[in-house]
Amino acid sequence: MKTRVGQRAENEPLRAGKGWTAAHHGEFLQGVFAEGRSLKRGLVSVPCSLHCSQASFTVTDATSVTVEPAWKAKAHRAAVLALRELGSPDLGGHLLIREDIPPGRGFGSSTCDVLAAMAAVQDAVGAALPTPVVSRLAVEAEQASDSLMLGDRVALFAHREGGVIEEFEGRLAPLEVIGFGTSSDGRGVDTLALPPARYSSWEIEAFRTLRAMLRNAVRNVDPEMLGRVATASARLNQRHLPVKDFDCLEELARQAGGVGVQVAHSGDVAGLLFDAEDPNVEERAEAASALLTRHGITTTWRFRTDK
């Protein structure tokens, strides 16, 4: 007996699917960028494998979707939207989310939940959604999404519209990152309460230049230029979500032999950046950690952007 996607035959066992998504660590670049005659908000995320979200979706005989924990409303919405897009709006199931991502800090916790949920639904149903559709649904589920659905592709992503503004040819130079929090209480930022930045004409022109620099950094796999883009973008964000002692952090990176500083443009994490292929990267990273400790930042973490 043949059944369409989303319908279970009488004796067919319940189906279950799984999905997971790794986090990010703020952005290399975020601002507004020209696309044709219009301006679009866009970003390029910093890959980070320190945290992830895992989801499972089990098809049930119900006609609705439940989620655990119950407060994961965005992931629930994403699962419902994915089922609708797959032609199975009446398919019921239970969505389970397990993650270790601190919310509101710039690790992309909501996007990770949303993408993991959609991946689990696709796995359970046995059908795949094209990446542009996943991007659109992610924005519909959470209003603004990070670019994690793009995988290893390097692209300027329209995070409030769900599309690629520009895909860059090449790859990101691998970086070693010494990460840390910048807020006094470590609670991060209420991203929903944070209004979208209103950029000046001067800032918009600066983003045009940074976009071109990033294009060259990716084409040439250039860690120093990538670091300069991240630092400049972080500095531009100071008018909108200031990081305390940013000038000092920039100087610490320079003293330790780093290539720059990156921040979460709507969170409180930041990182000192180092060329991961520099033969002296270990001693540079240790020097950076010591400098941060003397500056009063005692809790740090470390990761590579290509692992």
Rank of each mutant, 00 (worst) to 15 (best):
G31N: 11
F28L: 10
V46E: 01
V44E: 04
A22D: 09
G36I: 08
Q30N: 08
A23V: 02
E35H: 12
L29T: 00
K40S: 10
L29H: 03
K40C: 11
S49V: 10
G42Q: 08
H24W: 08
C48W: 00
L50S: 10
S38Q: 14
F28M: 02
G36Y: 02
H51M: 04
F33V: 07
E35N: 11
H51G: 08
L29I: 06
V32E: 15
K40Q: 12
E27P: 02
F33L: 11
S38Y: 12
H51L: 08
F28Q: 02
H51D: 07
V32M: 13
L29N: 00
F28R: 01
V46F: 00
E27K: 05
H25V: 01
V32Q: 15
S38I: 13
Q30M: 10
S38F: 12
G36K: 01
R37P: 04
V32R: 14
R37T: 13
E27H: 04
P47T: 10
H24T: 09
E27D: 07
S45K: 03
L29Y: 02
S49I: 05
G31W: 00
Q30C: 06
S45A: 15
Q30Y: 06
P47V: 10
G42A: 15
S45P: 06
A22Y: 08
E27C: 09
H24F: 07
A22C: 12
V44W: 01
A22G: 03
A34D: 14
K40R: 15
G26I: 02
L43A: 06
L50M: 15
G42V: 07
R41N: 14
V46Y: 01
G36W: 10
H25A: 15
R41V: 07
G31M: 05
E27T: 04
H51W: 11
C48E: 02
R41F: 14
A23P: 01
Q30W: 05
G36C: 08
C48Q: 03
L50W: 00
G42N: 09
E27N: 07
G31I: 04
V44G: 06
H25Q: 12
E35Q: 15
L39G: 09
E35C: 10
A23Y: 00
H24M: 10
L29P: 01
A22E: 10
A22P: 01
R41S: 15
G26P: 02
G31K: 00
S49Y: 13
L29D: 02
A34Q: 14
G36Q: 06
G31H: 06
G36P: 01
P47L: 12
G31R: 01
G31Y: 06
A34W: 09
H51Y: 15
P47M: 09
F33S: 02
A22N: 07
S49K: 14
G42R: 01
L29W: 04
V32W: 08
R37L: 11
A22S: 11
F33K: 00
F33R: 03
L43W: 04
V46P: 00
L39P: 08
